[in-house]
Design a protein around this nucleic acid. Structure first.
Lengths: 335, 335
DNA sequence: CTGTTAGCGCGTTCAC
DNA sequence: GTGAACGCGCTAACAG
């Protein structure tokens, strides 16, 4: 049914070896026979079988991508970056969702093992010891994107959340704010929760500002978290002139509730977000936010993994720079 | 290096055939030998080679997904839906981006052909005659999501854009609006542009409302389109009490400019969006919008394709219902 | 219940 | 420059 190099060989009156050589541009054949073979292949609508190829070459030219199933906003950008490079390098990507809490992670890894992917990009999911060992058992290059491991014993690319949170807070302080709230961070999240809380604290401390418990409202990085945080602030009549939302969603939640209470942003309250997702520029007012280079993370991560499959070198971890995108949600008090 | 069934067979003192039978639970073997084999397999950390399997079974258990590379907001939901079902049915998904204007489409299809995917899900990309023929040349089940072909000669799942636009407009009319603008639609877009414009016109007409050229502003479904449209309305001093933005982004663009001009939504101007993306609930005010069931589109599409690979039945096209999600961006004048 | 054989489609020796 | 033969890891057919 399907056309194989056998068919081509038969019709072109050559051996399959020659067909293979021509198709792979391996050199060592007559231009005449090449033309003949190419013509036949074209006429027959031949398409090579990558599965068979993978089998004999012991390499699939596939990069596996594992991520939680949440359709996060930056999901798209990271995958875009990955796919982009993969395509450029002649690789395909196969995607598997590990589940919001990583409950399908083992299955995902096994899947990648069975498909014999050449490399692995793991997005966002936090790995414990066992899971990391499982990944390592694949004996293929891999990298973590936007996350890391407690002992930093696996290569990763991410921004420094502590520094970024510090910068966000510092920015508010520099603009004259002293009563600064923190909202939406999950204090049990080692990667994006604790770090950002600590960055916030440190910035306060370095500027001689007191840290007050009632200024921070925990949450899960969601829009709702932001709303709840703001409502708490209001209810507790907490005095504050600015809030650092640990995600754009949180920041929008804050702005939303503020609006409903007639509190104008940024006139009455300043808000800064985190992620610089596409909603940041669409919000009212446009949201000042800490930007993470998601697309670049994806492309860099994919690129380095592919390179590692070829040169067998160890993959270095990398801290990638964030950038603060100034928009209109923060009032400059001291100007 | 890698463990194969040969290794297992050798150590367990059986033939590879038996190992294969056990591993595939094909039945017809002693419980004793099964245990022995399973143990050995486990100890060796055996992982089957799906590529070899695909080769001999002439079926890869992979579903291909082709989409434009735009990281659209609904991208995530559709893919989630697809992956979800695929996983449930034991399939893997391999993703390829066709490029915003489909410039990489041919490569994507060829890729899928070479990987011998069992079925294909094509998201959003519009196909011309040649492209459709190429897809068909794969001779595998496929489906179009959120798009169709001019001659409806390929199976698709989408909402009826005409009806949806009609419903949006009708909703505004029912709430007492008579001067209704349309913004952001691309009049050369056969699938989502022309249809929505026509739906809007028809609703006007059916309600005895005049259609006025200056009430419609074309665009490309983007936030910027919305902003530009609203600015035009303002500049031309077009009198209107409501605007139908053909995407949530467009709607937010309108609201944004309105806000900057001190125009209150919905008090002074009502706005309805389209897509019901996650930004809809986060906007100020929360945006009333036409909802498309993206996740369901993905899961339904994937499901039906997988089924078709098994029962060889033809895939029927399907119009999937939209729903109007009422929030706070439309003023009910007649109440 | 189990082993032997063949072959999936392809790349790669090693001869000629 | 080209072909015959082998093997990648696995399943399927047939024998026993």
């Amino acid at each position: 049914m399907t056309i194989t190099i056998k068919d081509i060989a038969r019709i072109a009156n050559v051996s399959t070896a020659t067909v293979s050589r021509v198709l792979n541009e391996a050199g060592g054949y007559n231009e005449e026979t090449k033309k003949k073979i190419m013509n036949v292949a074209h006429e027959l609508g031949y398409r090579r079988n990558e599965n068979a190829r993978s089998l004999v070459q012991n390499s699939s030219n596939i990069i596996g991508v594992i991520m939680p199933n949440v359709a996060t906003i930056f999901y798209g950008d990271i995958v875009n970056g990955i796919e982009n490079i993969a395509h450029e390098k002649g690789y395909s990507i196969i995607i598997s969702h590990a589940g919001v809490n990583g409950e399908r992670f083992v299955q995902s890894v096994n899947l990648m093992g069975e498909r014999k992917v050449d490399g692995l990009v793991i997005v966002t999911v936090e790995l414990d010891r066992n899971q990391l060992d499982l990944v390592k058992s694949l004996r293929i290059p891999f990298i973590l994107l936007s996350t890391d491991t407690p002992e930093k014993d696996a290569p990763f690319i991410k921004v420094n959340d502590f520094d970024a949170a510090y910068a966000a807070t510092q920015y508010l302080i520099e603009n004259g704010h002293e009563r600064i709230g923190l909202a939406g961070a999950n204090p049990t999240d080692r990667v994006a929760g604790i770090t950002r809380i600590e960055g916030y604290k440190k910035a306060l401390q370095d500027n001689g500002l007191p840290f007050e418990k009632k200024l921070v409202k925990y949450g899960d990085f969601s829009f709702n978290s932001g709303k709840e945080a703001m409502e708490s602030f209001l209810q507790e009549k907490t005095e504050l002139s600015a809030v650092f939302g640990v995600s754009d969603d949180v920041a929008l939640g804050i702005i939303s509730v503020a609006y409903n209470h007639g509190i104008n942003v940024p006139a009455d309250l300043s808000v800064i977000g985190y992620d610089n997702t596409r909603v940041a520029e669409m919000s009212i007012p446009p949201l000042t936010s800490i930007g993470q280079p998601f697309f670049e993370m994806g492309s860099e991560g994919c690129k380095i993994v592919i390179e590692a499959t070829q040169n067998k070198k160890e993959i270095p971890s990398r801290i990638i720079p964030f950038h603060l995108v100034e928009r209109k949600s923060v009032k400059k008090i001291n100007e």
